[in-house]
């Protein structure tokens, strides 16, 4: 099961590496969001520093949405969806594989965005371990929920619009939790970031387990 999951994830990452969509489009888009926030907040350095955690995670969610859509558009091209069904791989393995590939791409996105906010917003990391752990756990939650909703919307004609409408409200706890944990890690507010990490971990575990079961139901759609 894990072997199949890794097979799928490695295939996805190889395709992403070849096509460079993530590096040429998704990452610049994420960067662009950060620039736009600076315009929207009227170049107010103090406000940008204070709101760095929230802005960072909003940028991750929006650009992550693109990564999720991209990940499922490669599965809907030229009959590979059918071929994947015919391979007889367990749906749970497919779910874990797709989620793992999205998770790794989100991590790469977070690294780029972290460097960007450190430079552009003059943010400073006070608790590096909390910062890194939050990034990992939140990315796992977003990847799990995103994979579930990605496969749900992939065959719909309105997939571009329905995916954010369905997924973003579900990710509300991740946005709140990751922002609060970052408040602690970046020292912008006095909160217990590790407690918030618990919420993020719970979210990730719930959706990884639920997704592994529900993915098969959603695949049997035709």
């Amino acid at each position: 099961m894990l072997r199949d999951a890794w097979l799928i994830a490695a295939k996805d990452l190889r395709i992403e590496w070849r096509s460079r969509v993530a590096t040429n489009q998704v990452a610049p888009f994420a960067f662009l969001i950060l620039v736009l926030f600076a315009f929207a907040l009227d170049a107010n350095s103090a406000a940008l520093r204070e709101f760095t955690p929230g802005l960072f995670w909003v940028a991750v969610l929006f650009s992550g949405m693109l990564a999720i859509q991209r990940s499922f558009s490669i599965e809907s091209s030229d009959g590979v969806g059918d071929a994947l069904l015919l391979s007889g791989i367990e749906p749970a393995s497919m779910f874990l594989g797709k989620a793992l590939a999205i998770f790794l791409q989100l991590l790469a996105l977070e690294v780029i965005l972290a460097v960007a906010v450190l430079v552009l917003y003059d943010a400073g990391i006070e608790d590096g371990v909390l910062f890194a752990t939050t990034s990992l756990v939140a990315a796992a939650g977003v990847a799990a929920a995103g994979t579930l909703y990605g496969v749900l919307s992939v065959n719909l004609r309105v997939k571009e619009t329905i995916l954010p409408l369905l997924l973003l409200p579900v990710l509300a706890p991740v946005l709140i939790g990751a922002t609060r944990a970052f408040n602690d890690a970046l020292g912008t507010a006095a909160v217990d970031g590790w407690a918030w990490l618990g919420v993020l971990g719970l979210f990730a575990v719930i959706y990884i387990v639920f997704g592994s079961f529900a993915y098969g139901v959603l695949l049997e759609d035709s």
Partner: peptide, 28 residues
């Protein structure tokens, strides 16, 4: 247990010929 060839190729355009066939071989 079935092998199906349809109008669509069922191949990933960004992967090479050998990578595609190897992937599908391992997948099943």
């Amino acid at each position: 247990r079935v092998g199906m060839v349809g109008h669509a190729s069922g191949l990933y355009g960004d992967l090479t010929v050998a990578e595609n066939v190897r992937f599908w071989a391992r997948a099943c």
